Simulated scan of single mutants.
Amino acid sequence: MTETYATGTGDDLVAVASAMRPALAARAELCERERRLPEETVKELLDSGLFHMRVPRALGGLGCDERTKARVTAETAKACPSTAWVLNILAGTTAAATAGLPEEGVAEIFAGAHPPLVCGVNALGGTATRVPGGYRVDGSWGFASGCLHAGWAVMGVRFTDGAADASTGIVCMPMSELSVNDTWHVAGMRGTGSNTVVAKEVHVPERLAVPVPDGIAPALQRSPLAPAFSALLLGPLLGATESMLETVAAGLDRRRVTYFSYARQSDSHVVLNALGDAAMLIDTAWLHTDRVLADIDAEAATGPMDMHTSARGQADSAHAVRALRRAAALLMGIAGASAYAESNPLQRAWRDLEAGSHHAMLNTPHSLELYGRVLAGAEPNSPLWGPEATLFA
């Protein structure tokens, strides 16, 4: 990375992402076809420093906040949503590893000349059995976005010595000791390579294992749980929808309304109304995103979120993706049947948005129910909230 990137402001980092858009867009079809990021893209993201934008400066990163990461990944998604998704996940997980692991573990994975890339899955896909010097880990974790480009993996496990009340937590393992099953054959976000990572009798030393809440770092313990996971997914989805708006708006003077008396779409008040509606829905999504990210950036530094703010943050994220899906539907309607041609980048952005926005952490109906329950003083409908909240489920 250059000194300009390392000392730049949020606007500077967005400008870096914007400058990369033409090259990323040119490789978007290749990214989707190969179901992974092209090596040229990985190198450019590493050289730019964007993969490590959330890593503390003391460890070689840029130390930006969540709002900046969302803006950077949104800008990247305007060229290739799959690339933005991988950037978003690896940037977030690599930074989380610096807060969630013991100091000795952080020192080990950051011991190289350049910061590492860390992928991760918080679902409890494995078990960690106590052995001399650490743990023996076995398991399988699906949906491991970015695993094809990472050097380390942080995975959710159950720690057990045969007891029924095993604790949960994380282990960090080098990808060289893991295998990757090619399971990512999907309709959207194809280029993310979100395959299944498998561990078979991998030895993990205690410095790379964190039973929760026994030893988790205070900075991570203070962070809101589910709102942080759901909100960090929003940047690529916002950018994908913004790219659709840009494309559709740019074509209004060139396209006619077929079979109706409008030589240009821009002459139709119906079309312009739909365009304005889509733009406002995207703005709505950004406003909710800004609110939850501001809460996360503020509260992670000063103390835990209260229940109301945490549940509202989850509802913010879920409401944002609902607004984006509605905006995308309007824009595809304006673009018409030709938008579904494989050669049209609109259909890729639409498919990627649909796939990404249906992530389990962005479940709109149940997230809104959660917020309603908290407002009504009822019990939350998720184990991620309340006094027994856990990072892993």
Score class of each variant (00 low, 15 high):
residue 204 V to E: 00
residue 242 E to C: 11
residue 201 E to A: 15
residue 262 Y to F: 15
residue 208 L to F: 02
residue 268 S to A: 10
residue 236 P to G: 11
residue 179 S to F: 04
residue 245 L to S: 08
residue 277 D to V: 10
residue 283 D to W: 06
residue 189 M to K: 07
residue 184 W to T: 08
residue 264 R to E: 09
residue 196 T to D: 08
residue 245 L to D: 00
residue 272 L to V: 03
residue 198 V to P: 10
residue 187 A to R: 13
residue 179 S to H: 01
residue 223 S to P: 03
residue 233 L to E: 14
residue 259 Y to E: 12
residue 269 H to Q: 13
residue 241 T to I: 07
residue 285 A to I: 01
residue 251 G to R: 15
residue 279 A to F: 05
residue 257 V to C: 09
residue 182 D to M: 08
residue 205 P to K: 03
residue 211 P to N: 06
residue 222 R to G: 05
residue 195 N to M: 02
residue 266 S to M: 04
residue 204 V to S: 04
residue 286 W to T: 11
residue 184 W to E: 05
residue 276 G to Y: 01
residue 263 A to E: 10
residue 260 F to M: 14
residue 276 G to H: 00
residue 234 L to E: 09
residue 218 P to F: 04
residue 190 R to I: 06
residue 286 W to S: 10
residue 264 R to A: 09
residue 187 A to N: 12
residue 215 G to R: 10
residue 244 M to L: 14
residue 195 N to T: 00
residue 274 A to Y: 08
residue 222 R to W: 08
residue 268 S to Y: 05
residue 262 Y to S: 08
residue 175 M to W: 01
residue 218 P to A: 08
residue 284 T to H: 14
residue 240 A to N: 10
residue 250 A to L: 00
residue 219 A to E: 14
residue 180 V to P: 05
residue 190 R to M: 13
residue 198 V to F: 06
residue 221 Q to R: 15
residue 197 V to D: 08
residue 205 P to S: 05
residue 279 A to E: 13
residue 254 R to T: 14
residue 199 A to V: 00
residue 239 G to N: 12
residue 223 S to Q: 14
residue 181 N to D: 14
residue 207 R to P: 01
residue 281 L to N: 05
residue 267 D to I: 03
residue 194 S to M: 06
residue 277 D to M: 10
residue 270 V to I: 14
residue 188 G to C: 07
residue 282 I to H: 01
residue 283 D to L: 13
residue 206 E to C: 07
residue 286 W to P: 10
residue 271 V to E: 06
residue 216 I to A: 09
residue 280 M to K: 15
residue 181 N to I: 11
residue 273 N to P: 02
residue 232 L to E: 12
residue 265 Q to E: 11
residue 277 D to G: 07
residue 241 T to K: 08
residue 190 R to T: 09
residue 196 T to K: 06
residue 177 E to K: 09
residue 197 V to E: 07
residue 253 D to L: 11
residue 267 D to K: 04
residue 273 N to F: 13
residue 273 N to I: 09
residue 251 G to V: 00
residue 275 L to T: 06
residue 211 P to W: 04
residue 195 N to K: 01
residue 214 D to G: 11
residue 250 A to C: 00
residue 272 L to N: 15
residue 239 G to C: 12
residue 182 D to H: 11
residue 254 R to M: 10
residue 194 S to G: 13
residue 208 L to V: 05
residue 218 P to G: 10
residue 216 I to Q: 12
residue 217 A to C: 13
residue 257 V to P: 05
residue 248 V to Y: 03
residue 231 A to V: 09
residue 181 N to C: 11
residue 196 T to M: 08
residue 191 G to F: 03
residue 175 M to K: 00
residue 200 K to R: 15
residue 247 T to P: 03
residue 281 L to F: 03
residue 206 E to N: 05
residue 185 H to C: 07
residue 271 V to P: 09
residue 211 P to V: 06
residue 276 G to N: 12
residue 229 F to T: 12
residue 253 D to P: 09
residue 181 N to S: 13
residue 271 V to Y: 04
residue 263 A to I: 01
residue 281 L to P: 04
residue 219 A to V: 12
